[in-house]
């Protein structure tokens, strides 16, 4: 793949200031997304996936502190931008499908008007053109155009999700961040929407960051995958390779903890314990208390990020060591 990165994130660190001290929700994360590529971020809940998503749009709560790092969107580092400058990038360049997508529509406005609102915030197009665009978008996500003038409560869960996707596509952004977009839906609708999102993303040659706790979903949708643990990216690489040969013990544990959608039977080796409290993460490698391969080194010092073929991993004792450099 030729290198044409839409988004480059380098050494991103974001903390939440709390009374008990800083919560290290995003801790030195680096990755990049090429044009037309879809990146999956996977990890148990509480690992900082949503925090990364919100940081990318700089939509952070008052107690969040962007400690360091850069977010280069189409060649522009958005970290130093003011709120006013950032506003122009939001939705126009980077849009988002929220984790709580079901409630992302304002109940008192018609769905079509809410999409037009996004269009008008970024271009001074005539009302008639905006309406035309909404019709196109409804068509794209297979929604009946008669629903343009309806209110969110008249939509079913799946339809609402489609409307949200249509809204995210409205300004033809370079990249869409989808944070667990289908988690709240039933499996069949989830599968439909997943496939459609993938088709649209390919057709429009758009980039996407797809966040999920479900390895199987990521395997379906993403070209590249990043595995998150305790605010850090612990493994990164092309989906096929990561799945064929997980390097980090956490990736391996995650893979065996989730059954595949394709119905292949894994023996569900459960992952004992829970992700650490990010207020006070374990010393050394944060995963060591739950890791079957942990050594003294893991307990005391933070492992370096090393290249393993096309993959990167942050581990002292990789489970599959491929031409480590």
């Amino acid at each position: 793949m030729t290198s044409d990165p839409v988004l480059v994130v380098e050494d991103l660190t974001m903390h939440y200031a709390t009374r008990a001290g800083p919560v290290r929700a995003v801790d030195g994360v680096s990755f990049s997304v090429e044009r037309g590529q879809s990146l999956g971020l996977v990890g148990e809940s509480g690992c900082g996936k949503s925090s990364i998503a919100m940081t990318l749009l700089k939509l952070l709560p008052d107690n969040a502190r962007l400690v360091s790092g850069s977010i280069t969107l189409n060649g522009v580092d958005v970290v130093p931008l003011s709120e006013n400058q950032m506003r122009e990038h939001r939705w126009d360049r980077i849009s988002m499908v929220f984790q709580a997508a079901m409630n992302s529509l304002d109940p008192v406005y018609r769905v079509g008007d809410q999409i037009i609102e996004a269009l008008e915030a970024h271009s001074a197009s005539a009302p008639r053109d905006a309406m035309e665009r909404v019709r196109e978008l409804f068509d794209l996500v297979s929604l009946d155009p008669s629903y343009i003038r309806r209110y969110p409560h008249e939509y079913s869960g799946g339809m609402r999700q489609r409307a949200i996707i249509a809204m995210a596509l409205a300004c033809e952004p370079d990249i869409i961040v989808a944070d667990e977009p289908t988690t709240a839906l039933d499996v069949i609708v989830q599968d439909h929407i997943l496939r459609e999102m993938q088709a649209i993303q390919r057709a429009l040659n758009m980039s996407m960051i797809y966040i999920s706790h479900d390895m199987a979903v990521i395997a379906e949708v993403c070209d590249v995958v990043g595995v998150m643990y305790a605010g850090k990216l612990v493994e990164f690489g092309p989906t096929a390779e990561v799945y064929a040969r997980p390097i980090h013990p956490y990736t391996k544990a995650l893979m065996s903890a989730f059954p595949s959608v394709r119905g292949e039977k894994h023996d569900l080796a459960t992952l004992p314990g829970e992700p650490p409290d990010l207020l006070d993460p374990p010393s050394g490698c944060a995963f060591h208390p739950r890791c079957a391969y942990a050594t003294d080194e893991c307990r005391t010092s933070i492992p370096p990020t090393a290249k393993h073929g096309d993959q990167w991993a942050t581990c002292w004792n990789p489970v599959a060591d491929v031409d480590s450099e």
Binding site: R90, W91, F98, E117, A121
Partner: peptide, 17 residues
């Protein structure tokens, strides 16, 4: 605290809007 408020911000609306 509602999610649609976050969504409205994400759409790039002004704080006033």
């Amino acid at each position: 605290r509602e999610d649609f408020v976050m969504a409205a911000r994400a759409k790039g609306l002004t704080e006033r809007a």
